[in-house]
Design a protein around this nucleic acid. Structure first.
Length: 110
DNA sequence: TATTTGACGATTT
DNA sequence: CAAATCGCCAAAT
C-alpha cells in the first residue's frame, strides 16, 4: 500500500461507472456526473470521457445529455437519430429538437 | 513539460 | 432567443 494521498484511480473509469448507474427510462447530465464524482466543473472532462467511450455497450452514453436535456448531436452508437430511438425505446420522450424533459426523466444519483 | 482538444456550463453581448 | 466568450478539467500527443 502506498498511502499516497493522490487518487490515481483514474477519472474516466469513474464516469463510466456513474453512467452505468443510470436506470432505464432515465437520463442524466454531464454536470450531474461531474458533481457526483466530486468535481461539478469537470463536466467537460466527463463529456471527453464519453467521447472516447471505449465500451459503448456498457456505457449507455445515450442516457447522458447536456444541462438542458438536449442531445449532444454526436453519438458513439450511430447518430442522433439512433439516440432518440434508444431513449424512446426505454420510455423517454424525446422532442423533435432532440431534447428530453429533465423534470420528468432527469436522474441525479439521488 | 507544454500544447491541443473536447459529447460542458454559465454569463454576456 | 442566438451567438460569442470565458472558465474549468482531464487525457492524448
Amino acid at each position: 500500500m502506498k498511502s499516497k494521498s493522490k487518487r490515481t484511480g483514474g477519472f474516466f473509469p469513474r464516469v463510466y461507472e456513474a453512467v452505468r448507474l443510470i436506470p432505464h427510462g432515465k437520463v442524466t447530465t454531464y454536470g450531474a456526473i461531474a458533481a457526483y464524482l466530486g468535481s461539478p466543473k469537470s463536466s467537460r472532462a466527463v463529456g471527453y470521457a464519453l467521447h472516447v467511450n471505449p465500451y459503448p455497450v456498457e456505457v449507455p452514453c445515450h442516457r447522458v445529455v447536456n444541462r438542458h436535456g438536449s442531445l449532444s448531436g454526436s453519438f458513439a452508437f450511430g447518430g442522433g437519430d439512433a439516440q432518440r430511438a434508444l431513449l424512446e425505446s426505454e420510455g423517454v420522450s424525446v422532442s423533435d429538437d432532440y431534447t428530453v424533459n429533465l423534470s420528468e426523466y432527469g436522474y441525479f444519483f439521488g
